[in-house]
Simulated scan of single mutants.
Amino acid sequence: MKSQWECFLQNLGVWEGSFTNFSPQGTLLNDTSSRLSLEGLNNNQTVRLTLSRSGKDDVIREFMSVGGGLLFFENGSFSEGLIQLGPFSEFGAELAFVHENRRLRLVQLFDKNGHLNGLTLIREHLAGTPATERPPLQINDLLGEWRGQAVTIYRDLRSSDIYSTTLKIQLDDTGRLIQSTSFGDVSRQAALRLRTITSTATIKGSIILFDQDPEKQVQVLLLPDGASVTSPLQVLLRQSLFLEAGWLIQPNLRQRMIRSYNDKGEWVSLTLVTEEKV
């Protein structure tokens, strides 16, 4: 099993792309070209990050270890964000996928009152390789049954959990979306029983709004390059919450990443689901 540092090193290279900002309603606000270098120094004992964006000062950071609000999966995919939701403070996190020569990253930000405030989609490819992108995600891309495997890693670095997943997405006669998620264990001989969660949502253009509970409304925003971002419209103290991003890598291959917080507002775990359409 790779160490967190070894997982981080999967991201070394020069990544070219763009930062695209959206309103919470999915309106494109601006798009800025970017170049991000992750360079290994001292036999990869140190990593220097240099981010250049047009019209902005360069950002330079050096890493000799990783931790805090940052966790990596073995393929280099990761999430970084606040480890604690607090009163009257801004909140947010980044969820980032790595696949072959591409990275797709999504940043969700919430204001001091807990309202969703802004979204940033970052699309990158390794310098010198094709910048092939997927079309913008559509509802029809998601319909059907998806089966896959989830890996959950924990902030306290206890052993990870691996389990099977099934996601079914369909429309009813009124055009309302019905989603059923089932997950069960494949690593501990059924120590985790199969569980199913069903929810429904209203579709409004590129927004899927899960509005069954008026006090815990969650929206999914469909974005360019096969991306989606799942956000509570408002994060509340003393309620558990999750932030999610998705990437349709191929028509029948999708990944989802979920960053989960408990009802004390503490970041607990990070899950990567890799699923294929049946």
Rank of each mutant, 00 (worst) to 15 (best):
V47T: 03
L51E: 00
L106D: 04
G92P: 02
L70F: 12
N117F: 08
L82E: 05
G13F: 05
G128M: 08
L116C: 10
E16Y: 06
L85R: 06
F72M: 14
L95V: 13
R53V: 04
Q84C: 01
I60A: 00
A131Y: 11
N11I: 00
L71W: 11
N117P: 08
N42R: 12
Q10P: 05
R105K: 05
N42V: 02
P24I: 06
V98Q: 05
E90P: 07
P24K: 14
V59W: 00
G68W: 03
F78P: 08
G81M: 06
S65R: 10
R53L: 06
I122N: 05
L12T: 13
L116T: 08
R61G: 03
L51F: 01
F73I: 15
H125S: 13
T32A: 10
K112I: 12
L82A: 05
G86Y: 00
G67L: 14
G86E: 01
G17Q: 06
R103S: 08
E90I: 09
N44A: 09
P24S: 10
N42P: 00
L29G: 03
R123F: 00
T32F: 14
E90G: 11
I83H: 09
G118W: 03
A93C: 15
E39A: 14
N113V: 03
D57I: 06
H115Y: 12
D58V: 06
E62W: 04
L71G: 11
A127V: 14
S77D: 15
T32V: 13
L85D: 01
F63I: 11
T32N: 14
R103Y: 05
S23F: 07
F19V: 01
P130Q: 10
L119A: 09
A131Q: 13
S33R: 14
R102H: 03
N101V: 07
